[in-house]
């Protein structure tokens, strides 16, 4: 593992009294795809949302320990959450385009950053849509409602929207769980292309998907990190019995 991007150290997360993550430490490498796997409720989504502080929206959220990105503690008091989230984008489980046109959806991020020049906006929108491999499908109807797209297209639009603000890290929370196999394979291809220039952390319930797209895999269980290693190793010779049982489908 080289070039560690995200480090969690002795991280514990509570929702009210409930422990979601219990004293966990993890190193996530930069410019690779890291998959977080584990049964439902094991804290992987919670951890993902901790990285860009989306958990702050939940009133009962508390945390202990620290999370650093490039050595900087993102839970420091003088960290601006808004600027943090500009650098750490997120794609959600259910595609959530705004009720605006396709163009406006992608242009939204640059626009709220104060970009007004139409030419530049158009360029960014085109580039983002191309990177998200959806340009050819929507180039003729950029000003139609984004809600008219299919589920898979919507999800790729959401990825394009995230790319438009030019983040360093992209977090994906089961981005393909609600999609058909063809859309899923398109998203996976996309992830493959994106890892050259972005650090990607992806939560997935799909073992094959984790095996296909990720370079590293972390197995979570009951709020703890059981094991993390190169995906190849995890899926061929896991060090822990629990991991083996889970990826072979013997418990869960």
């Amino acid at each position: 593992m080289k070039e560690i991007k995200i480090v969690a150290k002795d991280l514990s997360i509570y929702y009210g009294e409930k422990v979601a993550i219990n004293n966990m430490s993890i190193d996530i490498p930069g410019y690779k795809v890291t998959a977080l796997i584990g049964p439902s409720g094991c804290g992987k989504s919670t951890f993902l949302r901790t990285i860009n502080r989306m958990n702050d929206l939940i009133p009962s959220f508390r945390h202990m320990g620290e999370v650093t990105v490039d050595g900087l503690n993102i839970y420091d008091k003088d960290i601006d959450v808004v600027n943090l989230r500009k650098k750490i984008g997120m794609v959600f489980q259910r595609s959530n385009p705004f009720a605006k046109s396709i163009f406006e959806n992608v242009a939204y991020g640059p626009r709220i950053n104060g970009l007004k020049a139409k030419g530049q906006l158009e360029e960014i929108v085109e580039n983002s849509l191309k990177k998200a491999a959806i340009w050819d499908e929507v180039k003729d109807r950029l000003h139609d409602s984004a809600l008219g797209l299919s589920g898979g297209q919507q999800q790729r639009l959401c990825i394009a929207r995230t790319l438009a603000v030019n983040p360093e890290i992209i977090l994906m929370d089961e981005p393909a769980s609600a999609l058909d196999p063809i859309s899923t394979s398109k998203i996976e291809e996309l992830i493959h292309q994106l890892k050259e220039s972005y650090t990607i952390v992806i939560v997935t319930h799909n073992m094959q998907q984790a095996a296909r797209v990720s370079d590293y895999t972390a197995f979570f269980y009951l709020g703890e990190l059981i094991e993390m290693d190169k995906t190849k190793d995890i899926f061929t010779k896991p060090a822990k019995k629990q991991t083996e049982d889970y990826i072979t489908g013997r418990f869960g």
């Binding site: 860009n52 989306m54 929206l57 808004v82 600027n83 943090l84 989230r85 500009k86 650098k87 984008g89 997120m90 959600f92 259910r94 959530n96 385009p97 705004f98 009720a99 939204y108 991020g109 709220i112 950053n113 959401c158 929207r161 995230t162 603000v165």
Partner: peptide, 12 residues
């Protein structure tokens, strides 16, 4: 999800 999407893009 609209709010989350917007906030995740770095909107205030």
């Amino acid at each position: 999800t609209y709010r989350e999407a917007s906030l995740a893009l770095g909107a205030t």
